[in-house]
Amino acid sequence: MAGRRRIRWEALSLKLVFGLLAAIALLFLVLPTAVVLLTSLTSSQSLRFPPPGFSLRWYVALLDADQMQRAGLNSLIVAFWTTLLSSICGTAAALAIARSRSPLMRAADLLFMSPLLLPALSFGFAALIFINRLGLSPSVPLLVLGHGIVCVPFVLRTTLASLSQLDASLLEASESLGADRLTTFRRITLPLIGPGIGAGAFLAFMASFDNVPVSLFLADERTEMLPIHLWQQIETNLDVRTAAASGAIVIATLILMLLAERFAGLTRQMH
């Protein structure tokens, strides 16, 4: 009797702890976002919370913010190519790793994952030294390459997860029906792991779009990226347009996420 009651107590306290942690996490994630959104709607001249009144004037002001727009466009271009690069590389790597059981491939898996585990700052710094040694200067392709390295793990993980769900007998069935490897890949494997790749691509896009540590080292004034530009604006002149830009990004992200969830079941692909 006493034992059972204790177990129930433990279960209850465990629930409480988890509930509390979840609440705190939500608070720390949602509250700042809400604050930014509210601030961006301010009618006043300065960044202040709570805003004295509401208006969309700073969103309108974004339309004239040339430098910010250029940085945003740079970020979009880099994120686009990064997504493409990391989707292809991540998928190819996942296919190779999933097919093989050799320790070499396990090592390769770890190697691909390392950018997620290592501090991105030290990777950015190392990359800068490296390209300097090669005599190259910052450019969009180099940025894409740098971003690609830190974004591949996302695609790799989600694709590996969906490959592990893929029933091997489907591939055997395809083969026994006379399909060659390429046909099997194109008509069976790819459609079935597609949502996994898509989820990874989405994460890669987001990770590239708001990447600071790598861009910090690999970008110059010409290839200035949005997160860094926003950071500098806040540092120097507390520009309310930064809040509006952040707000726009948050809203765009939400819409993208909803679309991804609707069409590919994003959250289903992540475990």
């Binding site: 029933d167 007998s169 489907l170 055997e172 069935a173 069976i188 079935l192």
Partner: peptide
Amino acid sequence: GIVFQNYALFPH
């Protein structure tokens, strides 16, 4: 021609 235990129909 093989009929697999789980049928292995292409789900998509």
